[in-house]
Simulated scan of single mutants.
Amino acid sequence: MKVTVINTGGTFNKRYNPITGQLDVASDNISINKIIASCPNVEFEIKNIVSKDSLDMTEEDREEICEAIKITKNDKVIIIHGTDTIHLTSQLIKEKKLEKQIVFTAAMIPMSIDEMEATMNFSLALGFLSANNKNGTYIAMHGVVADYSKLIKNKELGQFLIQE
């Protein structure tokens, strides 16, 4: 199986900066590389673009993500994205009718602090793609993969929940 991973930043990729004392969005693929090292049966193409917290994303950033999806030859795409505006980017992709299997995933806790959530969410997205589901835009978070319009971040609980 061939999968394109579009890494746009978000909490998934944040790391502690000892100089500023803040969590910065890394512009590398260290987090993803740790996960995919255990996936010998998958051929990955990794595109590292935007590298921002999703709260800082602009419409131009979202257009760049859409363009990266358009130009990839793979029909299976995982997008690492921040949780706060994942709904805006996924909505734009749906509006642009990018007909591929596109699965967004993210983490509420940086992988550099606790690897469990990011690894689980990425693995969930990858497993979904390996099942050859129909083309569409999905979100893989907290043990569920659903259409992007049905898996919503509940900010009071700090979890993604299915909304019917």
Rank of each mutant, 00 (worst) to 15 (best):
Q101D: 11
K96W: 01
Q91E: 15
M141S: 02
N154M: 04
T85P: 07
T20D: 10
T85L: 09
N7D: 13
T83P: 10
I80S: 00
F104G: 08
I113W: 09
R15P: 06
E115F: 04
A68N: 14
M111Y: 15
K100D: 10
A107P: 11
N74Q: 08
L129D: 01
E64S: 15
N121I: 05
I32Y: 05
I46A: 06
Q163K: 15
S112L: 03
V103K: 02
V3Q: 01
L126A: 06
Q101Y: 09
D24L: 03
A118R: 01
I86S: 05
C66Q: 01
L151S: 07
I78K: 05
L92R: 12
V5T: 13
G82V: 05
N13E: 15
D53F: 09
S90M: 08
M141H: 02
K2D: 14
V3K: 05
Q101A: 09
N29L: 13
N29T: 07
A37H: 14
R62P: 03
D114R: 13
V3C: 14
M108W: 08
F12A: 06
E43G: 07
F104C: 11
L23D: 02
F122G: 01
E99Y: 05
N17Q: 07
V144H: 08
H142S: 05
I69S: 10
D53G: 09
M116S: 05
I86T: 05
I69W: 15
I152W: 04
K153L: 10
I102G: 08
L124D: 04
E60P: 12
V42P: 11
I139W: 01
Y16K: 04
I49S: 12
Q91P: 00
A140N: 00
L126M: 10
L55A: 15
D84W: 09
E95R: 14
I69K: 12
T72R: 03
R62S: 14
D24Y: 02
T105N: 14
A26W: 03
G127T: 10
V77I: 15
I6M: 08
D75M: 04
Q159W: 09
I71T: 10
Y138I: 00
L23R: 02
I102A: 01
L124Q: 04
N74H: 11
K100R: 14
I139Q: 00
I152D: 03
Y148V: 01
M1L: 13
L126F: 07
P40L: 06
I80L: 11
I78F: 10
N133S: 01
K150Q: 05
I35E: 02
I36M: 01
S130Q: 12
M1V: 15
E59R: 10
K2W: 06
T89E: 02
K155A: 07
I19H: 07
G9I: 13
D56E: 09
V145K: 07
S149Y: 00
K34E: 07
G82A: 09
